[in-house]
Design a protein around this nucleic acid. Structure first.
Length: 491
RNA sequence: GUCCCCAUCGUCUAGUCUGGUCCAGGACACCGGCCUUUCACGCCGGCGACGCCGGUUCAAAUCCGGCUGGGGACGCCA
């Protein structure tokens, strides 16, 4: 599929969902999620997107997807797709976009020109190498490694290998009034003249975001804590442009178990990896939202509840650690909660991966129902499903050895004949038959349960006997019992 | 190094703004028990934290200061 068509697909999607918003109060809130397409959507980015999305849906605003691809070297179409796929899986629908910064170069030039004309920007021809050296020297001497303004007064015009720098004030303070963190004051002397247009004519991040947020009418900038230090620079640019500031809210970071930034060595970082591991999107969403945000003691939230209850005020200030423990529990919860039929299609890919022969939706749903309280993930479920899917089960040697004994053979014969004559093959009648057999033989049900279980599933652990028998059906059950019987005779 | 942020059970967190109702509540994980045809589910119980020091106060998890620890930023990356 071409990228164009791909985007169009999402556009269609959006149109369909736009009307939902009219039922919510409109407050003209505009937010955005601006990933840079240099990889897949990861846990941290997903949570930022989720917070923005929830905030916007709660307030009845517009949520924009903007692709920040000004790093031409590292940006790829593949990443754009990966990010949109992940957002689609999490159902983080956007109302506008995706916009691409590389398509908006004219807009940035226009704003760059404004800054040059007003004396707030100047051309600089210091080379990256020189800059690097000066930075290192400053660090070595314990000084803040900032640009000292060598080209400030040279009045260069644009030219090859020249960059445009923003002329930052040397004195005074800039205050960031953060919705989440409160007021943070920065000494302007800490800031330097940052590059806003690179020598290839492409704007840098700090400039492009500001121009985009201004021109797209963004009212609330909600992003990761790692952007706090960029914010005073951006505020200065807003001011130089004479524009009104948006509200800023910086959400605390998510770390790995050793409190270092979340990375591959902490396990899966990409949202789609969690899909592959058999997690349900609602579980990931529920897990992610509780990292930094809370609503009293409540742990489980439906999507509509989240939209209703989400506010920025309930976001905490301290960073959190992402572990899979709660996610696993949440996933198990949602697996239990769903109707078996709803799990059929999400489970199918996992079944296919195991090369099981295909079964009907109804059969699958029946099998799923027996495994819902026993699975933390779809992977676990697909694995546990094996005995439902194969024609012939292979006995676990230890289990067969312990339970498929010669003595149990006679019992099997009786069960086989009773079951063969049974008309209605449901849990209730099954239970009646077994209780009768047990009573006739004068033994405890526990005596025969494990042997039958081994014959039917090959293992000592499984869902309840009667549910298994009902799902498997008479033919398969009788065959398996006969195979078990054969084993007891031939051992 | 400089600047900025953060700090409650192992983890996610409530409580901190508006000190007393908190010898700190919930959830996950872990441990024990019950239920039981196995395994799970479920239910009941247990373990377990206000980083440290000082100050303010009749009273501090809550306010103030310092320390320590962790994180972030300091790019012609975003």
């Amino acid at each position: 599929m071409s990228l164009q068509k791909y985007y169009a697909r999402f556009r269609e999607d959006r149109r369909a969902k736009t009307d939902d918003r009219s039922i919510v109060k409109m407050e003209h809130i505009v937010t955005r999620f601006p990933p840079s397409p240099t990889g897949s959507l990861h846990i941290g980015g997903a949570r930022t997107a989720l917070f923005n999305w929830l905030f916007t849906r709660n307030r009845g605003g517009r949520f924009i997807l903007r692709i920040e691809d000004t790093d031409v070297e590292r940006s790829t179409d593949e990443s754009v797709k990966a990010i949109m796929d992940a957002m689609e899986w999490l159902e983080l629908t956007w109302d506008e976009g995706p916009y691409f910064q590389t398509n908006r170069l004219d807009v940035y030039s226009e704003y760059a020109k404004k800054l040059v004309d007003s004396g707030n920007a100047y051309w600089c021809q210091c080379t990256p190498e020189e800059l690097e050296m000066r930075r290192n020297a400053a660090m070595a001497e314990g000084r803040k490694p900032k640009y000292e303004g060598a080209c400030r007064t040279k009045a260069f015009g644009p030219g090859p290998n020249r960059v445009l720098r923003f002329r930052a004030p040397d004195t005074g303070t800039t205050v960031l009034r953060d919705i989440i963190k409160g007021a943070i004051e920065f000494d302007n002397s800490e800031l330097d003249d940052l590059v806003i247009v690179k020598s290839d004519g492409i704007p840098t991040y700090n400039f492009a975001v500001v121009v985009d947020d201004i021109t797209m009418g963004v009212t609330h900038v909600i992003r990761g804590d790692d952007h706090v230090n960029n914010t005073p620079r951006q505020i200065l640019i807003y001011q130089a442009l004479g524009e009104k500031l948006p509200e800023f809210g910086h959400v605390p970071m998510i770390h790995g178990e050793d409190r270092s930034p979340l990375s591959k060595r902490h396990g899966a970082t990409s949202v789609m990896e969690y899909k592959k591991m058999g997690f349900l999107p609602e579980a990931l969403v529920n897990c992610l939202v509780r990292l930094g945000w809370s609503y009293g003691d409540q742990e489980i939230f439906s999507r509509s509840e989240l939209i209703e209850k989400f506010t920025l005020e309930n976001i905490g200030k301290s960073p959190s650690i992402f572990t899979m423990e709660k996610l696993l529990w949440l996933n198990a919860h949602y697996i239990k909660e769903k109707r078996p039929e709803e799990l059929v299609s999400p489970l199918r890919p996992f079944l296919a991966l195991r090369n099981y022969t295909d079964k009907s939706d109804a059969y699958l749903a029946g099998a799923i129902r027996t495994l819902q309280t026993r699975s933390h993930t779809l992977v676990e479920m697909a694995d546990a499903m094996r005995f439902y899917m194969v024609d012939e089960v292979e006995f676990d040697p230890a289990a067969a050895d312990e339970f498929l004994t010669p003595e149990i053979g006679k019992v099997f014969e009786l069960i086989i004949s009773e079951l063969s004559n049974l008309e209605t093959f449901d849990e209730n009648s099954l239970e009646t038959v077994f209780r009768k057999i047990v009573a006739d033989l004068g033994i405890k049900f526990g005596k025969i349960a494990q042997p039958v279980r081994v014959a039917l599933t090959g293992a000592t652990k499984s869902p309840g006997l009667f549910e298994i028998i009902e799902v498997l059906g008479k033919k398969s059950v009788v065959e398996r019992l006969q195979k078990g019987l054969k084993y007891t005779r031939e051992r």
